[in-house]
Nucleic acid binder design. Structure first.
Lengths: 364, 364
DNA sequence: CGGTTAGCCTACAACGTTGGAAAGCAACGC
DNA sequence: GCGTTGCTTTCCAACGTTGTAGGCTAACCG
């Protein structure tokens, strides 16, 4: 059948273990022996059996990344970054899509859907604080996102409130007085929607603008389609608007679309800013100003934290890491002329803190 | 350490093999025995060790999907579909990004980057016909795309020439006379660029339009940025254009951007059609007409073919499968009014044929 | 020159599971 | 009443690798 170490050993005239030693770079091997073994490996086309190795070493060098779905550009780009970061560290990434309901998310944590990987990077969409107990798992876990704070796991999140506030203030600084927010989740206390909405209100406060509930456009799912609908509703209701803060870029792109079909000029009539800084933002018409939440850094940090737990390098208390985020000004806010390149117009610094503070988790 | 079948067996008072039989759904087990085993499993929180199982059964129920990069929307959506299709068949997908050069693609095939999976779905971007020998691998392989025809593997591809021809004819049928093509690869004989350009020329012929080299805008990489550049070059050179066939949607979106910045109306001044029908096409401004190459069907078929080879259900000659493709008319070609929904305006039927024809591979 | 050390290599026993074959046992048929 | 049959369970030996412990040289030291 397949070539095994047995076969290589036979041909090289050494023991199996010596072949193993060669393959694993054990230093004390006579050059002549190493050469014979390598010749045999090449000649027989030997490939190590990773499965057997994993059984023995209890490591697979694979990690799971669980995200809602890859067709959402933010998650596709996140996956790209995570895969690269993992690759740099010699790991392969197995992807689980959990978009098909809460149950899938539970399965990911309970391990039903976590085959043989050494650890999990999980970005929940449905699970919330009430499910905190589920996060107490016996394998290395890094949580992403804003759904769950205080889980017994490392956590990489965003500067949501501060960045949303800055985005709102930025619109205000451009002279906008009627700033709508697109993508709100009525009554929700947790998650990106709540945090970013909080930042929006703080931004209004700081700018001395009143909060008007009529300016809040709900959108359950954060897709382009729902963004277009929400924006459309607002406009069709005759709400006066001269600025839009969309809670993510997909919503913002949908909003641009709705504004366009109603013949409103961006940024002339309405300035628009999104959140996530997906690749699309650079090529939409007009190009979209956005908040860059530090995706690269999120991916790298998540992988690093996970690796540290897997290897046992880190055994201390869980951490919460918040990368720096930046506001990127583009055409949709008039920060650059048409055809110009986006540029940072503000930076919010992140940091690290314990994942389980003594007091109630503070929105950061 | 972790709970093993040993522990379960001890608690249930049966042999290890009986536990294995229960876990694997072996039918001939006394209900009382099964119950005891299941109680023990629940009580001890036993989880099967997939690594050990894989070593024994020589199956991991994982497959590799190798694509250039997930941040390209087409591949993100393809990955989404493949993961879902795999999931429906009880498989997990491991993703390799090969965007960082030819070497990575070679590694994927030689197995250096194919850990423990049962098979590979591979969409090459760099490898071409000259690398045919590399595709003669000893594991189940399904090839996607247009780089390589006639490899000793199942192949799922697109109706490239026919669909590109239809797209061009569609533009002509709208009265466009000066139809540019964006994304050409000068001198390249293989790959999507060549096939779709061939279709473009066939379309011109059919429509009785002359071929004008000035209307061909090269773009090495198919990104939005390169599409914008290529389109911009064309316009800045003063080439007269009233229609654009972009070889994929990313290019088309870039082209839309370039047209917009030069204050040309789409579809008024220039009608634009893309290829791939990515999600973006439905929400760009204006919405983008495109060729839907049957992505879902590609993913499903690819997984099915791979599974058939893995399980040994299929051992016959390799197949080439071409899903049906459709032209979706949207605003950018004026097929629907602003705010309207895209709709199919033409269908090209696919089919199945041997992957290694007796004659030279014919472009399909 | 004998004893120690360092370098190199091997034997053996796992890792946790499943395939195959055989054994135990009850019911069945004649 | 005894061989046969069929269900149920067990025993044993892999799957291909690596950790541990130990053995054998050759070199080195005093």
């Amino acid at each position: 059948m397949a070539v095994t170490m047995q076969d290589v050993a036979a041909r090289a005239g050494v023991s199996i273990k010596t072949v193993s030693n060669v393959v694993n770079g054990y230093p004390h091997i006579r050059p002549a022996t190493r050469e014979r073994v390598e010749e045999a490996i090449d000649h027989l086309g030997y490939r190590i059996n990773e499965t057997a190795r994993s059984l023995r070493t209890r490591r697979t060098d694979m990690i799971t990344l669980a995200v809602p779905e890859l067709s959402l550009p933010y998650f596709a780009e996140l996956a790209d970054s995570v895969i690269q970061a993992a690759d740099d560290r010699g790991l392969t990434v197995l992807i689980e899509q959990t978009s098909h309901g809460r149950e899938r998310e539970v399965d990911v944590l309970t391990g039903k859907r976590r085959n043989m990987t050494d650890g999990l990077i999980f970005s929940p969409l449905e699970l919330g604080p009430e499910d905190l107990a589920l996060f107490d798992v016996d394998f290395p876990l890094v949580v992403l996102g804003e759904r769950v704070f205080g889980a017994p796991a490392d956590h990489v999140t965003m500067n949501n409130v501060a960045a949303a506030k800055a985005a709102t203030v930025h619109l205000a600084s451009l002279g906008r007085k009627r700033i709508a927010v697109v993508g709100g989740h009525e009554g929700e206390q947790v998650g990106s929607a709540a945090l970013r909405t909080t930042g929006y209100r703080q931004g209004l406060d700081e700018a001395g603008l009143p909060y008007d509930p009529a300016l809040v456009a709900e959108a359950g799912l954060w897709h382009r389609s729902t963004g277009a609908e929400a924006m459309g509703r607002l406009l069709d209701d005759g709400v006066e608007v001269d600025g839009v803060f969309a809670l993510n870029d997909a919503l913002a792109l949908g909003a641009l679309h709705a504004l366009h079909t109603r013949r409103l000029d961006v940024p002339g009539d309405v300035a628009v800013i999104g959140f996530d800084d997906i690749d699309d933002a650079r090529y939409s018409v007009p190009t979209l100003s956005s908040v860059d939440p530090g995706r690269e850094q999120i991916a790298q940090t998540a992988v690093d934290l996970l690796v540290a737990r897997i290897t046992g390098t880190e055994t201390g208390p869980f951490r919460r890491v918040v990368p720096d985020s930046r506001i990127i000004g583009r055409e949709s806010t008039g920060d650059v002329p048409e055809g110009g390149e986006g540029r940072p117009v503000a930076v919010q610094e992140g940091g690290t803190e314990p994942a389980q503070p003594l007091t109630e988790p503070v929105a950061i």
